[in-house]
Structures are given as structure tokens and as C-alpha cells.
Amino acid sequence: MEDIIRLNNICYSYYGRIHAVSDISLAVKKGERFAIIGTNGSGKSTLLQIMNGLIHQTSGTYHFKDLEVTENTLKNKGFLRFFRENIGYVFQDSDVQLFCPTVLDELIYGPLQLELNEGVALDRAFEVMKMLQIETLKDRPSYMLSGGEKKKVAIGSILTMNPDILLLDEPTNGLDPRTQCFLVELMLNLSDAGKTLVIATHDLSLVDELHARVALLSEEHKIEKIGDCDEILKDLDLLLKVNLIHEHIHFHGNIHHRHILSHNLSHKHEKD
């Protein structure tokens, strides 16, 4: 499979002072599920924003489908259109992403930007609402939605643009288990439909469920390892090293246990 996204030695620092990502090189293949995992502040969101051309690397190169993406190339209207219709970005905070008066306006905003006619845009919006089970919300303003509904609308607002690559920043964060389950299934369905998914998360069970290829970021904002889901999630020493899991004490009745807390891969009890 060809590389769609290719980052080479990417560095980025906020205000020229706070290092967010350092010397990152990775490639995302067409149609794959790719997860960027790491602790809070390791640079996952920054990396997604660089991939979406919202912020620009201080050094290194970013190629999208063999075309270099820079602040300058994104000023070209033709390239910008090509780039935006291929990559959609779902923000961690849905509140910042939803800015249209109602849910329906939110869903047709993207297609209208792509200069699709209103009929097609509305068809897309209704199909997506049906898929996400949010038809009843179509006339509601975004501030009258629950957290899960906002997340669905935020994802829908990107899906109506039909991008080939979806960048999802902590997609299941703060959602109830039912909505989380719904989103995981949705992501798997979209992946089956041929979409490339790039997910930034620290939720290891999500990575396991999606069975994604993984790039593990260290607390030094560097790539610690890139590999298959099983290879990385089973390497508890590696996960301990980057502080994604920790030792944890709990009780079963009167028995006191100490074990490594990870998602569901390890629950090895040792009697203290």
C-alpha cells in the first residue's frame, strides 16, 4: 500500500519555546487504521494538527500523497481544496468545532464549501444523520446537545465532506460506554468502507478494539516505537517506560493485590 501521509523529522514548538513534537518520522498507508498513542502532553494533538495543515512544523517535511505541505503550498487555492477534501479533522473539543446555527447547517457547511449543489449537500447530511442516529436533532443548536451528541455531529460534519482520511483527536474521550461503543463500530465501518483513520488517543482499549498500527510517543515528544497493535500493547515494559500504564494496588474482598494497570491485556495478580 502506498504512503498517503509521510512525516520526516518533524519538530514543532509552541511560541518557539515549548517543545511539542521532536524529530518525528512516520508514514500512514492508504486505508489503514493508525493510532498515535502517548501520555497527556506528549504531542499527539499537535501531530494531528500538523497533518491537517493547521499549524506548520518548525523543521522537517510533511508530504501528503507525495506533495509537500507547507504554509506556502496551502496558500494555493487549488492545493488547499485538494488537501481539505481529502483530509478531515475531528477535534477533541466538539464545542470549538461546531459553529453553525443548527445541526443541519453544521452538516451541510462542508459540502457547500466543496461547491456541491444544495440538493446533494442535503442528501449527504440526511444520510449521515441517519447513520449516526441523530435525525431528531437536525434543528437543534449545538449548545443544546449532550457531549455524545456533539461528538456525533462533529464527526458527521466531517463525514459529509467525504474525506478519504479522518484524523480523530481523542474520539472517545469523556463519552459514556454506549456512545463509545457506537463510535468504535462507526470507525470500524468507515475503515471497512476504505477510509484511512488516524487516531490520537491514550485509550489503549480503543487501540486494541480498532486493531490499529501504532506509533508510540514518549514523554520527550519523540517516537518511541512504531509497530503492530499486539506488538506494542503486549510490551508492558515499553508502556511502563512511557508512563501509559502504571502499577496499581486494589482489593478483591480482603485480598490485597498489586498489578500493572493497563487496558485489558494484563491483570496479573500477585499476592502481597
Binding site: K65, N76, K77, N162, D192
Partner: peptide
């Protein structure tokens, strides 16, 4: 959730670079 992905999501945007000579953004 049943796999009810709309048909339009199965069609893929063209990967062929468009004509990039459309002027620059201000």
C-alpha cells in the same frame, strides 16, 4: 450498529492533484 455507511462515503475523492493554478489566498 449495523453497517449502514451511506453510498457517497464509499466513493472516494480523486487523488489526482487538481490544477493548482487557482491563485493564492490572502
Amino acid at each position: 450498529m449495523k453497517n449502514n455507511v451511506p453510498a457517497f462515503l464509499l466513493s472516494r475523492p480523486s487523488y489526482e492533484p487538481r490544477n493548482f493554478d487557482k491563485g493564492r489566498l490572502k
